[in-house]
């Protein structure tokens, strides 16, 4: 069940201005029965002041389509045509206290019905920009044509960029594969046309190449004097002290016996001795020591003392 706001529910259960306006001055029909939603908006306009005095709707569609249609009529009644044309689909959604992302297209349909009704009132033909190719992102009503135009206009090469520009893919993301397919095709065409270099083009499944930082400040490497033997032994000691508590928790222990060059001799006691995991323990100790001291070291267990 969709999470509709109280206001959406109210406008669905008790829609205002539903019905037919017999002698409408402008009629806008948008949507299609195959898409599951369609809306007819009818308006009456006072000729001198250009104020919309009446508006009614008829809608075939889901709960939020009906609520959005009704909200639209409420928003435009009393406004001049000029003012009404400023209304965006977001205004319709906001009026309703928001719509689930998957239902934003209902507010878009309201917006388009208004454009169509005003065009009809002015005696113009309203052409929508919605008919190029398949609908890719249902959540935001974005079709293939719109994605392609946006990719070309902005030289996009990543799915996230398309989402940022068009919202497509920003909700349920079931359209991600569809967006990828369009991106791959359009980028390939752009490479062919010489307006995109091949290494920038989107390749599905490729490991994302991290953008190189624009300016790299080159710093002289910190000159580190090699450790003295004493420093090295101290560091080894300290590191082993850090490791011990975790070994002790498992009933074992590890003691430093000696350091000969790069060979570190330790005594493993308790549960570690003879345990088939002591190899792993030694490896673990060795890894920690190498990391801390920064030079290759070999950890060798002293023969257990009985």
């Amino acid at each position: 069940m969709w999470e509709y706001s109280e206001k959406v529910k109210d406008y669905f259960f008790n829609p205002k201005n539903s019905g037919v306006l017999e002698d409408a001055d402008g009629v806008g029909d948008v949507g299609a029965i195959s898409c599951g939603d369609a809306l007819r908006l009818m308006i009456k306009v006072e000729p001198v002041s250009q104020v919309i005095t009446e508006a009614k709707f008829q809608t075939f569609g889901c709960g939020s389509a009906i609520a959005s249609s009704s909200a639209l009529t409420e928003l435009i009644i009393g406004k001049t045509i000029e003012q009404a044309m400023q209304i965006s689909n977001q205004d319709i959604a906001d009026f309703l206290g928001g719509l689930p992302p998957e239902k934003m297209h209902c507010s878009v349909m309201g917006y388009e019905a208004l454009q169509a009704a005003v065009a009809n009132y002015r005696g113009e033909e309203w052409v929508d920009d919605h008919e190029e190719g398949a609908l890719i992102c249902k959540c935001f009503g974005v079709d293939e044509g719109m994605i392609e135009r946006t990719i070309r206009a902005n030289t996009l090469t990543a799915v996230e960029e398309i989402t940022n520009f068009t919202k497509a893919g920003g909700s349920c993301a079931t359209c991600a594969e569809g967006i990828e397919a369009v991106l791959e095709r359009v980028n390939a065409e752009m490479v062919e046309e010489g307006i995109l270099s091949a290494h920038e083009a989107f390749v599905p499944g490729a490991v994302p190449v991290l953008a190189k930082p624009k300016k790299v400040v080159v710093k002289a490497p910190e000159s580190k004097a090699p450790l003295t033997t004493l420093q090295k032994i101290r560091l080894i000691e300290e590191t082993i002290e850090e490791i011990r508590p975790s070994l002790q928790r498992d009933g074992g222990d590890c003691e430093l016996i000696d350091v000969e060059g790069n060979r570190v001799i330790v005594k493993l006691t308790g549960a570690c001795v003879g345990c088939h995991l002591s190899g792993a323990t030694i490896e673990g100790v060795q890894a920690r020591l190498v990391e801390a001291v920064g030079v290759p070291l070999l950890v060798i267990p002293a023969a257990p003392v009985h």
């Binding site: 029909d29 299609a32 369609a38 007819r40």
Partner: peptide
């Protein structure tokens, strides 16, 4: 409402 009239409700945009 328009089901009887052939093509009476024929909106833009699919």
């Amino acid at each position: 409402r328009e089901r009887e009239k052939e093509g009476a409700f024929n909106p833009t945009y699919a």
